[in-house]
């Protein structure tokens, strides 16, 4: 297995005045190029913290992140993030939001016309080209998230980080967007790391599912391979034995062995 992205013995301890909380303990994970990996766990288990560490937005207390064998500890476009709440800049149009990243990343390698064309290409990929001159307040939640994905894709990241990207959407829109992301992954072959708390979403989209134990001191409890052939079809999978078995495994992990204590 060639390690494209490697999480090496990551610990994260938050210190607030005298009190220290160990959020993550000894996280080790290697991800191959082109792989789609989901991290699933109950809320508060530190999965978002883990994503922030990979993105470079937070630093690990010990351990580190290696991308193509080079340590990364500051944020950069090679690890573009699709944020949970889209985080589009409300004073920019859809086009300008995507262009913000494109102009930075390709300032030397592409001409202005090429950059503009590249922005439109990425908006086309997520079927948002028609809304190029709209502001985020004028489009729906699902559309905003599409633009968020386009913004991340347009930076040609080595790893695409999705932070509960569909969490704030209604079920129908969510399904629609999941299909879009699947199609994009199929087409572009990106390496994708997704944080989620939706079991079906994890099984449907991922090659591997990383299950985290409850915090504090959350660890990787189990890693499950999802041996489903791609392209995957939502409706066919609903009756597939492998799909149901994978789903069962994740559910057992989350609700039997590592039940969320505070929620009880």
């Amino acid at each position: 297995m060639t390690a494209y992205l490697k999480l090496d013995h990551i610990d994260k301890i938050f210190t607030r005045s005298a009190a220290t909380t160990e959020v993550l303990k000894d996280i080790n994970l290697t991800i191959e190029k082109g792989e789609y990996v989901s991290i699933i766990g109950h809320s508060g288990c530190g999965k978002s913290t883990l994503l922030n560490i990979i993105a470079g937005l937070t630093n690990a207390t010990t351990g580190g992140v290696l991308l193509e064998n080079r340590e990364v500890n500051s944020p950069g476009p090679d690890r573009a993030v699709v944020f949970q709440n889209h985080s589009l800049l409300p004073w920019l149009t859809v086009f300008e939001n995507v262009k913000l990243g494109v102009d930075k990343v390709f300032s030397r390698t592409k001409t202005k016309a090429e950059r503009d064309a590249w922005v439109m290409h990425n908006l086309n990929l997520v079927q948002m080209a028609h809304a190029r001159d709209k502001r985020p307040s004028e489009i729906s939640g699902g559309m905003k998230q599409r633009v968020g994905i386009a913004r991340a894709l347009a930076m040609e990241p080595k790893v695409l980080l999705l932070d509960e990207p569909f969490g704030a959407l209604d079920a129908l829109t969510r399904a629609h967007l999941q299909d879009s992301v699947m199609a994009l992954h199929q087409k572009l072959g990106n390496t994708i790391l997704m944080i989620t708390h939706d079991v079906d979403e994890a099984v449907l989209l991922s090659d591997r599912i990383v299950m985290m134990t409850n915090g504090p001191s959350a660890r990787i409890g189990e890693v499950l391979e999802v041996p489903l052939a791609r392209p995957r079809k939502r409706l066919e999978l609903a009756t597939s034995a492998t799909y149901l078995k994978c789903r069962q495994r994740v559910l057992e992990f989350l609700y039997e062995r590592h039940r969320f204590v505070e929620a009880a």
Binding site: L57, P75, G76, P77, V81, F83, S87, L89, K104, M155
Partner: peptide
């Protein structure tokens, strides 16, 4: 969020 976006884009 906006600060994060700026950080990822490396403004």
């Amino acid at each position: 969020d906006y600060r994060n976006v700026a950080a990822v884009v490396q403004l």
